[in-house]
Design a protein around this nucleic acid. Structure first.
Length: 434
DNA sequence: TATCCACAGGAAATCAGGGTGT
DNA sequence: ACACCCTGATTTCCTGTGGATA
């Protein structure tokens, strides 16, 4: 694909032909996706039991208690909930509970949560994505729940609930949801919150804690041997016989165990390793491929993240990049980033000047994403600021920023700011202070 | 030891944009 | 048209502060 210069054009027909005739690695690669629900969930017996016990009364038409699930990413919280809900739906009972799944990271505002619940139940008259007052939607929702769900139970699963709580209207909407039942005649609702932060309860309204925070189910991180069991199960479904060398799964498990026992990562790793082998039309997946997959996965995530951030955020990142590119010795502080940002944003039409305050937030976001590190340090009479460093390779940053049409033009712009003498002098003092 | 820099970072206000029903 | 709604991005206003310097 990348050979525009030479005459050999990519022969797509030939590629497909050899692909189809080549070795088959995967039998069913969906089994390695995190949303795949396997027949068995290894090492989650106690959680499954707990949730099953809590929710069973829904089959008799009673209201199950609301509860929270805690655990780091990739500990099977969502999978377990979905597993139980699937099993519950398979039971022969007159009452068929509804499950409404809400990812608070995607459906991120009070209005949209109400609208999302309404729209997944209604199927016909949809609530528009914006425009109406919240209380109107709330009333409509109450009516809809009673009329459409009737005497059954409606489970509301709020994934990544911690994100919701830390927003402005977050507590209000949660409170409204907890008191749904008080306003319903026939239908009953049950809230299930999923979070990967234990400490988010601090920001939770006490009224909400009492109704949904009393009991919680903890999902401990998987250790390497547990991850191995999970991978073995999935690999049997996903891969053809004999394509995995025996060291592959233990290695994937070991890598993922280091990352807080994240099963999702382990599965991604295994899948990526298989895809690497498939790409070069080999027959066997070895530890080499796992190592390469580990590397590529990390890069993929970073590239994806950078491509996804807003343009202003890219410009902040570009500012940092340009300073370190043209003056590698420069000690980068937030004020510098502000100045360079002001400079380069003028090069791109339609980009407004930002405040230092705003730039500061963008820097924090990049730091949170693990792209840079920003440590606040006091320089005495030279003030208090952040010292910024890259946490990932500059080539990767460059690659990602060159990929965007808006930013690619400025990646060679040497900041005028750096050439000012007082800037150089001040930075020399900073170097000594660090 | 008091001073004072250059920011950090919280809270609230504002703006613009995509909507609604009447 | 008009009055009003919700949201996300940003600005405004603000108080706080670690430690080199005088």
């Amino acid at each position: 694909m990348k050979n525009h210069n030479n005459n050999h054009q990519f022969n797509i027909d030939k590629f497909y032909k050899s692909y189809l005739n080549g070795p088959r690695i995967f039998k069913n690669r969906d089994a390695l996706d995190s949303w795949y629900i396997p027949k068995e969930l290894p090492h989650r017996d106690s959680q499954i039991k707990n949730i099953a016990e809590k929710t069973a009364c829904a089959l008799l038409g009673d209201t199950p208690p609301s509860f929270l699930c805690y655990g780091m990413t990739g500990t099977g919280k969502t999978a377990t909930i979905r597993y139980v809900s699937q099993k519950l739906a398979q039971q022969t009972s007159e009452i068929k509970p509804w499950w409404i799944y809400i990812n608070c990271n995607v459906v991120s505002t009070p209005y949209r949560i109400l609208a999302h619940i309404y729209n997944t139940i209604s199927r016909q008259e949809k609530i528009p994505p914006t425009g109406l007052p919240k209380d109107i939607i709330f009333k409509n929702l109450l009516g809809l729940l009673d009329s459409k769900i009737g005497n059954s139970i409606c489970f509301l699963v709020l994934d990544e609930i911690d994100i919701l709580v830390n927003k402005k209207g977050g507590n209000e909407i949660l409170y409204d949801l907890t008191r749904l039942n008080e306003n319903l005649d026939k239908c009953k609702t049950c809230l299930i919150g999923i979070s990967n932060k234990l400490k988010f309860r601090e920001n939770l309204d006490p009224r909400i804690i009492s109704s949904l925070g009393e009991e919680h189910i903890v999902f401990p991180s998987y250790d390497a041997s547990e991850l191995r069991d999970i991978l073995n199960d999935r690999a049997k479904i996903a891969f053809n016989e004999g394509v995995l060398k025996e060291e592959v799964i233990p290695l994937c498990a070991a890598f993922a165990a280091k990352e807080n026992g994240d099963a999702r990562k382990a599965l991604q790793l295994l899948r990526k390793a298989g895809e690497l082998v498939e790409r070069v039309q080999n027959k066997i997946v070895t530890s080499k491929h796992v190592e390469k997959a580990q590397e590529e996965l990390e890069n993929d995530h970073i590239m994806e993240y950078i491509k996804g951030i807003p343009l202003q955020s890219k410009l902040v990142l570009a500012s940092i990049y340009l300073i370190s590119k043209f003056s590698p010795e420069h000690v980068i502080i937030s004020g510098d980033i502000y100045d360079v940002h002001s400079e380069i944003r003028g090069l791109i039409p339609g980009i407004r000047q930002l405040t230092k305050r705003r730039i500061s937030d963008y820097i924090n976001e990049l730091a949170l994403a693990g792209i840079i590190s920003a440590d606040v340090k006091s320089m005495g009479h030279y003030g208090r600021t952040k010292i910024i460093k890259f946490d990932i390779s500059m080539e990767l940053i460059e690659k990602a920023l060159l990929d965007s049409d808006k930013t690619k033009g400025i990646m060679n712009h040497k900041p005028v700011f750096l050439q000012a003498n007082k800037v150089k002098l001040k930075n020399n003092i900073f170097k000594k202070l660090i």
